[in-house]
Deep mutational scan, measured.
Amino acid sequence: TTLHFDLDGKKLQYTGVSEEIARLVEELKRRGVDLKEIVRILEELLK
């Protein structure tokens, strides 16, 4: 799965993300978590 974000005018793309992580990101968005925080979490998970 590939995730795309537009953060402060920067286009971020994460490829090869598992379905689980993609679902987690969608859930965080639904809960109103700040996009910067979501990206920070995502980068930690993908290390």
Rank of each mutant, 00 (worst) to 15 (best):
T1I: 14
T1G: 10
T1A: 08
T2F: 04
T2L: 04
L3F: 03
L3T: 01
L3E: 01
H4M: 10
H4K: 05
H4Y: 13
F5T: 01
F5S: 00
D6R: 02
D6P: 00
D6W: 13
L7P: 00
L7W: 05
D8N: 05
D8K: 01
G9C: 02
K10R: 10
K10L: 13
K10G: 06
K10E: 12
K11Y: 10
L12G: 01
L12Q: 05
Q13E: 14
Q13G: 03
Q13H: 14
Q13S: 15
Y14M: 02
Y14K: 00
Y14C: 01
Y14F: 12
Y14P: 00
T15M: 07
T15A: 09
T15Y: 07
G16C: 05
G16R: 06
G16E: 06
V17Y: 01
V17W: 01
V17D: 01
V17C: 02
V17A: 03
S18Q: 05
S18I: 04
E19H: 14
E20I: 05
E20S: 11
E20G: 07
E20L: 05
I21D: 08
I21N: 11
I21K: 03
A22H: 07
A22T: 08
A22K: 05
A22M: 09
L24T: 15
V25A: 04
V25I: 10
E26Q: 15
E27C: 13
E27N: 11
L28D: 01
L28N: 03
K29P: 02
K29S: 11
K29N: 08
R30N: 09
R30L: 14
R31Q: 12
R31K: 12
R31P: 01
R31F: 05
R31S: 07
G32N: 14
G32F: 06
G32M: 11
V33M: 14
V33F: 11
D34M: 12
D34R: 07
D34F: 11
L35T: 15
E37P: 02
I38C: 03
I38E: 00
I38R: 03
V39T: 03
V39N: 02
R40P: 04
R40V: 09
R40I: 07
I41V: 12
I41W: 07
L42Q: 00
L42W: 00
E43T: 06
E44T: 12
E44Q: 11
L45G: 05
L45K: 13
L45I: 08
L45Y: 08
L46I: 09
L46Q: 04
